[in-house]
Amino acid sequence: MNTDCALQEKGESERTLEPFRRILLRHGLTLERRKTTTLQINVGLLCNQICRHCHVSAGPGRKENMDSETADAVIAYAGRTRFETVDITGGAPELNPNFVKLIEEISCLTPRLMFRSNLSALTDGKRDDLTGLLKARRVAIVASFPSLNESQADSQRGDGIFRKSIAALQKLNSLGYGHQGTGLELDLACNPAGAFLPAPQDQTTKRFREVLMKRWGIVFNNLFAFANVPLGRFRIWLEEKGNLESYLSSLASGFNACAIDGLMCRTTVSVSWDGYLYDCDFNLAGGLHMGKRKTHVSEMKGQPPEGSPIAVGDHCYTCTAGAGFT
């Protein structure tokens, strides 16, 4: 049973969700932008999978996809505003027809380019040249891999995805990804397969490293344990299963004021498939524009101003639960 200090401090009257904005005020905290070091690009909601935990509700039927003109505007922004990291996400970014252009152009504009892959789209046999390009451009891959258990993983991501993911990781390893000293970074993103919080990242890393090597000979560099964000398809699933209230409560009861300092939204600008800007991918999913106004990437002269306030919603509890979100 959970008997941590946060729970003990709470009375019965506090079990309903306190708005995130109010808990910041209660702790005397403000959430403001620092120097922006990361440009995150959400190239669209098209995906070959229909994952139950997806906060942007991506899937095969989604038409929202970054067009060539917007991709050019994003590339131009990355050129006039040097970011330490550029992070490409989706949907399945590999399915966007402008993905290769983005990789080729942006890899020259940033010291660190990473993209988030669901693994099955990358190795579906239709994009064999892509892994070679990623390797040549030293693109870091952050691969979704929620569980070491086949049924648990497939229940989150779809039938057969676990085995495809194992095969994809083995293929990436054979190219040098995930091996120390190759400069080819392969990280795992691990989201819980349900309405519960993730295990401590260090413990999960240790176990995944041992089991993946022992059973499948797979290596990786880092593992990131992320809580699922109660937005999009995941929120619908929570509501349908009657888990929404308890899940939000578990996130809120894990509120860690110290996590505010390192929140990614303070150093990230996220651009959506249609070119508009947000403080993070979750605000993008929630429709909370950066600075509370629609700003197109083509309007940006440089980094968003330091000290400007971050838009917040109750989904922000996800990133302040426990050790926080990276």
Partner: peptide
């Protein structure tokens, strides 16, 4: 019942699966 509820959730949160 309290313990079953609590530790089912805890097991999932610690990375166990239903088979285990």
């Amino acid at each position: 019942p309290y313990c079953i509820h609590a530790f089912t959730q805890t097991c999932l949160e610690k990375g166990s699966n239903l088979d285990e």
